[in-house]
Structures are given as C-alpha cells and as structure tokens.
C-alpha cells in the first residue's frame, strides 16, 4: 500500500486574512514496509503533510495517491482508507472517546460494523500488541491511566482497525524517559513483527536516529532532504541552520571532529560513537 504525493500544496485558513501557505509543491513516495521519519523545525508542515496521507486534509493543489487511488476522487472510500492508514495523534486526551480502555479500542472496529466476536478479538489482539494486559486494563477507566498507558491505549485503538500504514505524530512528547522507552519498544516491535509501514513524526532527533531508516526533512513547507538516515545527518550544518538539533550523541562527536578527531560525519548511536572514538584514539597513538 504505497503512498505517492505529487506536487502537493496546501494553505492554512485559505480565503481569510490569516491565510498561510504551509506546504508547497511536495513530491515523495513511501513504499511498503518502510520506517520513515519526518522532521523539521516548528511550523515546517510535518503534521499538515501527514494528515494528507489519510485524507484528513485535502490538497489545494496536487495529488495524494494511496494504493493507486487518488484520495480526491469522489468514489474513494475514505472510511476504509482511514482504517488502512492509522493515525496516532500527539495528545492522547483528544483521541480517547469512550469511558473504558476496552470500549475505546473497540471504537474503530465498531465503525466498520464488524460482528461482536470479531471486535472482541481485535481488542484482545491490539491490547496484547501494545503490552496492556487484557484482564487488568479492559475495564479500566480511561482517566485512571498514566501518560504512557494512555498513549499505548491510543495506539491500540488504531491497531484494532488493522492498519497497513501507521502514522505516529509526536507520540512521545511529554513522557518521562521510562515511558518513552516503553512506547518506542512497542513501535519497534510492530514494525519488525507486523511489517507495518511506519511514518514517525518527532521532535526528538535521538528517537529518529534510533528508529528511522529514511528521513524526510521539511523546511518551510518544502522537502529539504529525503534520504537514508545516515546520509541526512551528514548535513549537520544545514540541519542546525534551519533550526533543528542533532542527536545528542552527534552534538559530542561533531565537536570532537572539530577538535581534530577522525570520526565519521554521522553517528547514530552511543555504541557506534564508542567504537569510532576508540578507533580514532588508537590510530592517533600509532601515528604518534
């Protein structure tokens, strides 16, 4: 179920004095099974772009084609599309509508008019996928959940629709480090075991570096880079110029390079950094 975007442009509050162009002339393609990170400074258009993938927004110009169907066509089945392209929003408080966890997860499947038995199975399965124990949490009040649990419930609500593509829009914001780790492990597992195409929007470069295979960098509504993760972070200077940061570990290695260390330009994990620094030091000693 590939996503194809051709010459997409979009303006916010079109036709009012507050009109503002958010996206201009975007072209990209997301293939089955990819893990794509979308990054960019605030107001670069990340969320606006992603909300076109499941037709929550309709382009002013250009086309969005999912699985060969142009979403602007009248006959496009948007309800089915939105089950295939799941979207998890940043704030769980806006996406939990029912009083209990189990009922909320059943919200999507119920909209598909599935038989009760099937809905029940989907809830069971989705809760298992995000690591919420069914007996403990099925009847649990939504408001009695912690921040991390709420986010897992929100992800389960989308998984219960059996999506082939999942969009995660800054889902770890505001969580403590332990909570972040839990959510990231759930997302990793889903991508590896279920082969769900994952589109991950985040402000955290550490998470992007650790998760994404490919990164799309947006700046002022345009695609600045679209490449493998290691390649994108080679443009460290440019990323900082547009208002992004580097992964924390690269903040250190980049300064070491400036201090004369011989290290690769893009380093995405602590292990990688340890080995590169160790190698550089050894070589230095040999040279000396």
């Amino acid at each position: 179920m590939p996503i194809e975007v051709n010459n997409l442009s979009y303006s916010y509050k079109k036709g009012t004095p507050f009109e503002k162009q958010v996206l201009s002339n975007i072209n990209l393609k997301i293939n089955d099974g990819e893990f794509v990170g979308i990054i960019g400074p605030t107001q670069a258009g990340k969320t606006t772009l992603a909300q076109h993938f499941n037709a929550l927004l309709v382009p002013d110009q250009g086309r969005v084609i999912v699985n060969g169907v142009d979403l602007a066509e009248k006959k496009a089945d948007l309800v089915k599309l939105r089950h295939n392209v799941g979207y998890v929003f940043q704030n769980p408080d806006y996406q939990l509508f029912e009083p209990t966890v189990g009922e909320d997860i059943a919200f999507g499947p119920r909209n598909q008019n599935l038989p009760p038995k099937e809905i029940e199975n989907r809830v069971l399965e989705a809760m298992a996928q995000v690591g919420l124990d069914y007996d403990t949490f099925n009847k649990r009040d939504i408001f009695a959940l912690s921040g991390g649990q709420k986010r897992r419930a929100a992800i389960a609500g989308v998984l219960a629709c059996k999506p082939q593509i999942m969009i995660l829009d800054d889902v770890t914001a505001g969580l403590d480090p332990g909570g972040r780790k839990e959510i990231i492990n759930v997302i990793k597992k889903l991508h590896h075991e279920q082969e769900i195409t994952t589109i991950y929007i985040s402000n955290s470069m550490d998470e992007i570096a650790a998760l994404a295979e490919r990164i799309i960098v947006l700046n002022q509504g345009q695609v600045l880079f679209d490449d493998q993760t290691g390649e994108v972070f080679l443009h460290a200077r440019k990323l900082i110029d547009i208002g992004l940061e580097l992964p924390e570990v690269m903040n250190i290695t980049t300064r070491l390079i400036e201090a004369g260390f011989n290290l690769p330009g893009a380093i995405l994990s602590i292990d990688q950094a340890v080995h590169a620094i160790a190698a550089s030091l050894q070589k230095g000693q040999v040279d000396a």
Binding site: D176, P177, G178, E248, V249, I270, V274, I277
Partner: peptide, 18 residues
C-alpha cells in the same frame, strides 16, 4: 527510577569499558 542517564555519561561509561 524511570529516568535515564545523560548521553555524555553513557558515552563516558562505554569508553571506560573499552
């Protein structure tokens, strides 16, 4: 305690192990 170590401290630890 549900927290994390600063990246610099993790990196320092890794380097010490090497």
């Amino acid at each position: 305690l549900g927290l994390d170590f600063p990246v610099s401290a993790k990196l320092a630890e890794g380097l010490r192990k090497q």
